[in-house]
């Protein structure tokens, strides 16, 4: 009864994640100062997603949670992408068909 569901991660693991997050922050700033054109945003977002994943999996400890909690966390991000996907499928396709009076 008294034992906890979560194994206690080591300090070393937490410090490693912290250093990785710091390095990725430096990397995103460095990449930001280079001019890659449109790829700038793609690189910045790829680094941001990596950082967010590290925080969710290790700092928030989702990897040790029950399947129900995992599904709930994942569902939040899935809904977010439904919002972006359906929203942008409207705005990005408006010019495809000429609508009189628009």
């Amino acid at each position: 009864m008294s034992h906890t569901a979560h194994p206690i991660p080591s300090v070393r693991l937490y410090v490693t994640i912290w250093i990785t997050l710091g390095v990725l922050t430096g990397l995103t700033v460095l990449a930001g100062y280079q001019d890659f054109g449109f790829a700038n945003t793609v690189i910045a977002l790829a680094i941001a997603v990596t950082k967010a994943s590290l925080v969710v999996l290790f700092f928030m400890g989702v990897r040790h949670n029950t399947p129900l909690t995992k599904v709930t966390a994942i569902a939040g991000f899935v809904w977010l992408f439904i919002l972006f996907g359906l929203g942008m499928s409207d705005y990005l396709t408006r010019h495809w068909i000429g609508v009189p009076g628009r």
Partner: peptide, 10 residues
Amino acid sequence: IFLFPLLYLL
């Protein structure tokens, strides 16, 4: 983590 690149680095 998302606000920083999207607002500042752009």
